[in-house]
Computed example of a mutant assay.
Amino acid sequence: MHFRRGAAITANDVKLSTTKYDHESYQAGPLMPGSYTFKLEGSTGSAKKQVELMGQANLIEGAAGNVGRKFIQLAHQLGAVVTTTSAARDFDRCRQLGSELTLDYHEPVASQCDRQFDHIIDTSGKVPLQANLAALNQGGQVTLITAPADNHFTFDVRQFYMAQKQISGFVISHATDDQLARAAKWLNPQFAAGALLEDDLNCQPFAAAAEVHAALEQGRDHHQRFVLVPPTEKI
C-alpha cells in the first residue's frame, strides 16, 4: 500500500476505540486499496445494480496483486463471471479466490481465449488500451487504476464510440465522504467474516513512517502491506 492510496482524515474525525484489538483484528482496514472498494461499491448501491452484475463477464488484469485479489473476491461474491491474468504460479490462488478462468499475463488475452467482457479492470498499466477495448462487449467498460510507464495510450476512436464503450479512471484521493461511508457498509461485514484479510502484514509504529515510505518507493517492501499503528498504551 502506497501512501498516495490513503485518505486524509481531519483530527476532529479521529476517535480512539476503547476496545482492545490485537493486530490481526484491526489492521486490515487501513490496508484496503480504495480502487476496488469504490469501483465495486458503485455496483452495490441498489438491488437492481446487484442483479445487473449477476453473470457479468469481468476481466481483472494483474489479479494476483493486492488490489486484484480484492477485486476477484468481491466480483465473485456479487455474481460476476471472473477471468484473471497473472503469472502462472498464481493461478491456483486466483481460482481459490473466485476466478473461473486464469490466463498468463505474459501473453495477449485474445491469444488465450475468445471471451468478450462487460468490464475490464486493469490494475497493471501494462496492457495496451486498444487491446482491452477490443475485448469489450458493446457498451462495456475499461477501468484504469494506474498508468503505463510512458503515461500514454492510443486507441481506435471510431471503434470505441460506435460500440458505446466506456473508459473510467479511479483515484482514492477524490473519493467522497458518501462513497467512503457506503464502501464501509459493504466492506466491514467482509472483514468481520474473515474475508479480504489474506495480506502479509507488517506493523510498524507511527515513528517509522519515513522508513516505511522509503521502503515502498525503493521496492524493499517484498510485497508486504505496512500498517502504521499508535503506541499500544493509546489503543
Rank of each mutant, 00 (worst) to 15 (best):
M1R: 07
H2W: 09
R4G: 06
R4Y: 15
R4A: 13
R5A: 08
G6F: 01
A7H: 13
I9Y: 10
N12T: 12
V14N: 05
V14Q: 02
K15M: 14
L16A: 13
L16G: 02
S17Y: 04
E24R: 09
E24T: 09
Y26I: 14
A28Q: 04
G29W: 08
P30F: 12
L31N: 04
L31T: 15
M32E: 09
P33K: 00
P33F: 01
G34H: 01
Y36C: 08
Y36R: 06
T37R: 04
L40H: 05
G42I: 09
A47C: 01
V51I: 09
E52S: 13
L53K: 08
M54I: 10
N58Y: 13
I60A: 10
A64K: 03
R69S: 15
K70C: 06
L74T: 12
A75I: 00
H76Y: 15
Q77V: 04
G79F: 05
A80N: 08
A80K: 02
V81C: 07
V81H: 04
V81W: 01
A87I: 00
D92P: 08
C94R: 07
L101A: 04
L103N: 09
D104N: 14
A110S: 15
S111Q: 11
Q112E: 03
Q112P: 01
F117I: 03
F117P: 13
D118R: 09
I120E: 03
I120G: 14
I120R: 00
T123H: 09
S124H: 07
S124N: 05
K126S: 12
V127G: 04
P128H: 02
L129K: 08
L129M: 11
L133Y: 07
A134Y: 01
A134I: 01
A135E: 06
L136D: 00
N137H: 04
G139Q: 08
Q141M: 13
L144M: 14
T146Y: 02
A147P: 01
P148F: 02
A149E: 11
D150W: 02
F155S: 04
R158F: 13
G169I: 05
I172D: 10
S173L: 04
D177F: 14
R182A: 12
A183H: 01
A192R: 11
A193G: 10
L196I: 02
L197C: 15
E198Y: 06
E198I: 05
D199Y: 04
D200M: 00
N202W: 01
C203V: 03
A215D: 15
L216W: 10
G219K: 03
D221F: 09
H222Q: 14
Q224M: 15
R225F: 00
L228C: 11
P230F: 07
P231H: 00
T232E: 12
T232W: 08
E233H: 09
E233K: 06
K234N: 10
I235D: 03
